[in-house]
Amino acid sequence: MTAGLKSHLKGLDSGDSSQAIGNVLRESLSSQESFSQKHGSMSADIIIEATNVSKWYGTFRALTDVNLTVRKGERIVICGPSGSGKSTLIRCFNRLEAHQKGEITVNGIRLHNKMRNVTEVRKNVGMVFQHFNLFPHMTVLMNCMAGPMWIKGVPEAQAKKTALKFLERVRIPEQANKYPVQLSGGQQQRVAIARSLCMEPAVMLFDEPTSALDPEMVSEVLDTMTSLASDGMTMVCVTHEMGFARAVADRVIFMDWGQIVEEGNPNDFFTNPQHERTKLFLSQILRH
């Protein structure tokens, strides 16, 4: 993160409204571009690399030869009709699901059936779920502190500091001592984001983070994700929020029948889709 970005963020925290977000967004986008131009060819920048990934549930083929590379700082949006394998794909990235064919490498570690260091992978991959999945028997603060304390052995005081920092980052520090059921859906999802951030992951996976929310809560979660993106966080989002995709994504991927049908930058994707299936999907989803 550049110094300029930091000062902008400070402005953001002290309540300097939407203009700041816009500035940060633009600035970080441009710095991102120059960054990837400089280092784009280096393999060290690749955080997730999936080659020819296939997966079956019994006889049903959920993924068919999927190829995807996620570089550092990239923001990728995956969309597609339900049952198209979007969620399955990103759940393969932290080994919540096992793939049967092809290779997935995350942070330089190859994922396979007999791996012993799956924790090493998961430590570096944050995951946000559709139904939040906060731990209901712990306070919001403890939800955020648990990971660093129990996995990384961070002392309690420091874990608390980190947790409060990220709760502030998602703008709900005042809820720290409440239990998850006492919060609204949008707040819970922001806590879930903070919980993942506390592990300081290299990449964040979002599995339809706004699908279970009331319409008016969608924007608060999307705002959080947008500002996360402007910090340069590497993100892979499965979402139907096309506005978010257009504003934030570096690349939009359209999946159907377990395959990547189309892939491109958001501008081309939305204004000039190539495949019939993509056109149909977009016309369905953008009609309203």
Partner: peptide, 25 residues
Amino acid sequence: RGQWEASRSIGFGFGLTMRRIILPQ
């Protein structure tokens, strides 16, 4: 099931998940 998934995705192992997440609930 989501509790298992959330816990494992943070990186908690089986024992930790059982002891600190599943059994208390």
